[in-house]
Every structure is written in structure tokens, then in C-alpha cells.
Amino acid sequence: MAQLGFFLLPAAVAAVLIFGLARRVPLFSSFTAGAKDGLRACAAVLPPLVGLVTAVRMLQASGALDLFSTAAAPLAGALGFPVEAAPLALLRPISGSGSTAWLNEIFRQCGPDSFAGRVASVVMGSTETTFYAVAVYYGAVGVKKTGATLPAALAADLSGYVFSVLAVRLQFGA
């Protein structure tokens, strides 16, 4: 399994390059044009990150996070969810930058290859900013009655957290 991790990125790069060659895409100029978009996206996330990383770091330094963890420990424990990643589960459906800031904090405290670090990584990779997506898509077409959307999306998120723990245990046996 660990071997697969080393193959994925080179395989993706090779697939894109071979596909581009076959379709006669001007590879390098196309690449730089796309990379410019990436830079713009990065500049766009910097202001929210400054606000949210600072807030997360403050919460940690003030001891408020320890209090929260103590309070959340029984519920997180019952689900087998690492306590350090519990705030991430709360923030994930609401704010993309906020959950990135928290992921960063978990890596800083526990390391990316710890159990909490791995579960947090899988949660980030397998869920989305639910409330943002619902607001943007229904807002754009002026639909106010969203029917089963929110319950279904939140059920997906919640089960995603449980599946993340199970998948990490299954793959890494921790």
C-alpha cells in the first residue's frame, strides 16, 4: 500500500504528459498558463488563512482547545475518532480555509503520519465544504426549498468521519 503512494504522483504526471503529447498540446506554454491560475488561487486563499490560522493558534495557546477536547473526548471516543481531529469535523462542512488551518495545526502537533494526522487527512480528502456548496448552488438559481439536500449531505459528512477512521484502521492497522 505504501508503495502505491509513491507511484501515484509520478503516474499522474506521466499520464498528463503522454495525453498532452498525443493530443498535440503545446505542453510548456499550456502548463505555465495553468500554473498562473494556481498562483491566483493561492493569493485568494491567503487573507482568509491569515485570519483563521491566527484564530486556531490562539485557541490552542489559550488552553480553550484542551477544555474542548476534554468535553468532546467521550463522544469522539465512542466513535473511535481521534480527539485532536474533533474540531476539524465541526469546521469541515462550514469553512474550507478554516479546515485547512486546522489540518495544519493537527500536523504541527501530532505529525502527518500519526493516527490523528492520517484520519484528519482522510477527512479532508473525502468530504467537502457542505454548507458553502448548498448555499452557492441553490442561491445561484433562487431555490429556497432544498428538500432532502441538507439532511442527506450532513448524513454523508457524518458517515464520512466514521468511514475515515475505519479506512485508516483498515489500511494502517493502527
Binding site: L4, L8, R118
Partner: peptide, 12 residues
């Protein structure tokens, strides 16, 4: 191995 979590991500 930064991408070793990918199988778990797909499963979840």
C-alpha cells in the same frame, strides 16, 4: 509518504 492515505481516502 504523503500520498499513502489515498486508498483510505477513496474508501471513505
Amino acid at each position: 509518504s504523503p500520498f499513502d492515505i489515498v486508498p483510505a481516502v477513496w474508501l471513505a
